[in-house]
Each structure stands twice: as C-alpha cells, then as structure tokens.
C-alpha cells in the first residue's frame, strides 16, 4: 500500500482527545479560580468571610445571568451586544408599571421580563429574516433599547417604589435573624440571596436543556455548521431566534434583579454589561466561532471576573488597574483557547 494514502489513521494517535482537552480547559479555569481565591485570602483577611462571599455572589449573579444568555447565543453562532441596554429598559418598564400603572410588583416584573423577551425576538427576526449580521442587529438594539429607557424616564431615576420592589434583589432564603437583648436585630446567618438562587436554578436548567433536549442539540448543530443543520432538517431560523429570545428574557430578569436591589430604576444601569457577559462565556471556553461552549464554563468565567473585581478592590487596586488586569485575563484565556483549537 502506498505511503500517505490513508493519513486519517495516524492522526489521532499520541494526541489528547478533544474531550480530554475540554476537561483540561475546564479545570484550568476552575484551577485559576481556586488560585485567585487563595491569593486574595492571603492578601486580604476580610476576603474569605461569609459576608464577602454573599456580596461576591450577588455581584456575580448579573454577569452570570447575562452570560448564560450570551453563551447560548454564541454557541448557535451569534453574538448579542444589546443585553446591557435591554436590562435597563426592562428594569425601568417594571418600575414604571409599579409607579405609574399601579401594577403589583410580581406582575410589573413579569412585564419587564417580557419587554426583554420582545427585544430578543426583534434581534432574532432581524438576524434571520432581514439577514443582518448579528453584530449589527444587536448593536442597533443596544442603541434603541437604551434610547427608549432614557426616553420613557426622561433620563431620570425612578424611585419611591416601595419596599416590596426590593424583595427580589435584597431578600434571602434561610436568613436567620435573632432579636438581640438590646432590641436590635442580629443576623446569625445571612441566608442565600434570592438572586443567587435564581442564577443557580437557571444555570442548571439551561445547562440541562443544552445537554439533553432536542432544542439544545439543535443549538450546537446550528453553531457547528448551519448549512449541514439546515440540510438535516433543523429549523435553523427558529433555533437562532429562540437563542436571542432567551438572551433577551435573561437580560430582562437581570434588569429587574438589579433595579430591585437598588429599589430604584436607573435608565443608565448596565452600560457595557454585555461585554462582561461575553467575557464570562469566552473565559469559560465558549468559542466565538460557534458550536462549542458550556454553561458550567460560563458560570466559572463569571466567578473569575467577579472575584477578580472584588479581590482587587479589597486590595486597594484602582478601578483603572482592574480594567487593565481583566482585559489581560480575557486576552490570555482566548489565546489559550486558540491554542487548543489549532490543529
């Protein structure tokens, strides 16, 4: 048999399988997370405390919620730049529903989330029907949603929303409070904040859907090769549209959570959050070329960003330096990802 006639036989031997490489990548992210925690614990004694853990959890929640949406969109081969603006629009709509229309808080928040879903639907239709590149479609939505949020509030914060509006963002499960001898409440256990629970539940649910459902499988197939998916009978346009709707709904939810935490709706909230969301997905191993990515990776990525910010803060590193460091981390992880995918 002539040499070189069957090169495929020799190729995989002696190299790590992709699955092994994926695991290494994931453990690399997880390992760097552990290393970060260890380093910050040494440099700042207050870092490894329950209270700080709670505040990191809350900070990470918004990045992770947006990151879950970003991951699904990117796996299907798209990108969503509009989520920062959409969360602001959703939040102020929820607030205005309470303040101007007098709706009960849960209904108002559902309305806000629905607005996010509609923004996502528009993104999806512009990408699939008008065939605009996702970058442009969602860039347009980024400006439109921000403009709407500023327009309907007159660029002013919406406050005076009542205590119940803050329940979602500030409440916690299993909080143990004792009334002290002096009559003041004493918090024995701060509980698990609702936003963190929400984030964990949604991360599990979306991870399950991606891994186990027909829709999830179609998301990967469309991102891996849209034409092959179409020729296999996958409703490509429907799948792509749904990813943007999911991203929009999660942005709407994030908006409600953020505004609830402040008990004030800020039309300027969430500027540049889309970049944190995309960064968390990318740090977690999602490929911007589509077809590859996991929710667990993204959650780890969100924690890397959140812990870096928190720990650097506690060590007195300026906000400017933090940006530089996070920028470098993104470059480094994507470079590692490229190395992994080369060959």
């Amino acid at each position: 048999m002539p040499a070189g006639l069957n090169p495929s036989v020799a190729a995989p031997r002696g190299r790590l399988s992709d699955r092994q490489k994926d695991l290494i990548q994931k453990f690399a992210a997880l390992g760097s997370l552990v290393a970060l925690v260890a380093a910050f614990s040494l440099t700042s004694p207050a870092f490894l405390s329950l209270g700080n853990g709670m505040s990191i959890g809350l900070q990470v929640t918004s990045i992770a919620l947006l990151g879950i949406g970003a991951t699904v969109v990117i796996i299907a081969g798209g990108i969503d730049l509009s989520v920062g603006s959409v969360l602001a629009l959703s939040g102020v709509v929820a607030a205005l529903c309470v303040k101007e229309a007098g709706l009960p808080v849960p209904l108002a928040m559902l309305a806000g989330i629905a607005v996010g879903g509609v923004c996502g639907l528009v993104n999806g239709l512009v990408v699939t029907r008008l065939k605009l590149p996702p970058f442009i479609a969602t860039l347009g939505m980024m400006l439109i949603a921000r403009g709407l949020a500023l327009q309907i509030t007159g660029a002013r914060a919406v406050s005076g929303l009542g205590e119940s509006f803050g329940a979602l963002g500030n409440g916690a499960l299993l909080r143990i409070v004792r009334i002290g001898d002096d009559g003041f409440p004493e918090v024995l256990f701060p509980g698990i904040p609702y936003p963190v629970l929400l984030m964990a539940g949604l991360a599990l649910a979306v991870a399950f859907l991606l891994r186990r459902s027909v829709l999830g499988r179609h998301v990967y197939a469309v991102g891996s090769n849209a034409e092959a998916a179409r020729l296999s009978g996958v409703a490509v346009n429907r799948v792509v549209t749904l990813t943007y709707v999911l991203s929009g709904l999660l942005a709407g939810l994030t908006g409600c959570v953020l505004m609830s935490r402040l008990v004030t709706a800020q039309p300027n909230e969430g500027v540049m959050y889309e970049l944190d969301a995309i960064a968390s997905a990318v740090i977690g191993g999602t490929s911007l070329a589509g077809g590859i990515g996991t929710i667990s990776g993204t959650v780890i990525g969100a924690f890397v960003i959140g812990i870096l910010r928190n720990g650097l803060n506690m060590n007195g590193v300026s906000a400017f330096t933090q940006q530089i460091i996070i920028g470098l981390v993104i470059l480094l992880t994507v470079w590692i990802d490229q190395l992994r995918n080369r060959r």
Partner: peptide, 15 residues
C-alpha cells in the same frame, strides 16, 4: 454541508 464537524459521531448520526 453534510456534517456538524465539531460534534461527535453519535450526535451527527441522530441529528
């Protein structure tokens, strides 16, 4: 046009 090349054998067979 035929394969989702990044996906494994089983996922392509059942797509």
């Amino acid at each position: 046009q035929g394969l989702a090349v990044k996906m494994p054998v089983d996922a392509n067979l059942t797509l």
